[in-house]
């Protein structure tokens, strides 16, 4: 079904006729992190629309088990997912999807993350544990990502090197501090991810 190449530069048509307004090419990034870490705030700070909420299905597996074939019980759960978008130009639209956080479960976001340009893992230094799952996921799927410490009060309680050590992310993973409430700060955090993705793509 998703196979035909359309004459449209950018978007790939999956239907025979292409009447109507020509849509922009959609691209997406994923905003991940634990519960209440500021994912929706981040999306809302830069989105041209009020963040919308939809329900996504995620497949949860028991924590610590990576190989699905070894887990007879996998649960599909319906969770809320917040998202927003930015029209970068008439032919290009960036969607930002906040991943549903499931702190005590491993999870599969494949449906959501497939084709994403990159991921931003938001960290609250008071609750570092909450973001391990997201870091593991992006590393496992080899999706370019950066870690962004949300400085809730404009300051960070820990040295960034300590955060990097605690998260056990390699030096190749960009680590930055941002303020989820500030559009410019969110933009710059996303740029950190994209520049990392570009460097990775050019290797």
């Amino acid at each position: 079904m998703v196979s035909e190449l359309s004459p449209t530069p950018g978007a790939r048509s999956v239907s025979a006729d292409t009447e109507g307004p020509r849509p922009p090419m959609p691209v997406k990034m994923v905003i991940a992190g634990g519960f209440g870490v500021g994912k929706t705030t981040t999306v809302g700070a830069i989105s041209e629309i009020e963040p919308l909420t939809t329900e996504a299905s995620i497949t949860s597996v028991a924590a610590g088990i990576d190989d699905l074939s070894h887990t007879p019980e996998k649960m599909t759960t319906t969770v809320a997912m917040d998202f927003g978008c930015v029209t970068l130009d008439p032919t290009l639209k960036l969607y930002l999807f906040g991943t549903p956080g499931q702190e005590r479960f491993g999870f599969m976001w494949d449906d959501l993350v497939e084709g994403a340009l990159g991921g931003l893992v938001i960290v609250d230094t008071r609750r570092l544990d909450d973001c391990y799952a997201a870091v593991d996921y992006f590393e496992h799927r080899e999706i370019p990502f950066a870690v962004a410490v949300n400085a809730f009060d404009g300051k960070v309680e820990h040295d960034l090197n300590d955060v990097r050590w605690a998260l056990d992310v390699g030096d190749h993973v960009p680590l930055t501090v941002f303020d989820a409430r500030e559009r410019g700060s969110v933009r710059d955090a996303l740029l950190v991810v994209l520049e990392h993705a570009l460097a990775t793509a050019q290797q």
């Binding site: 359309s6 950018g10 978007a11 790939r12 849509p23 090419m25 084709g115």
Partner: peptide, 11 residues
């Protein structure tokens, strides 16, 4: 409806 899927490999 016409559906336009994202470009493959754009990431």
């Amino acid at each position: 409806l016409a559906l336009y899927a994202p470009q493959a490999e754009s990431a």
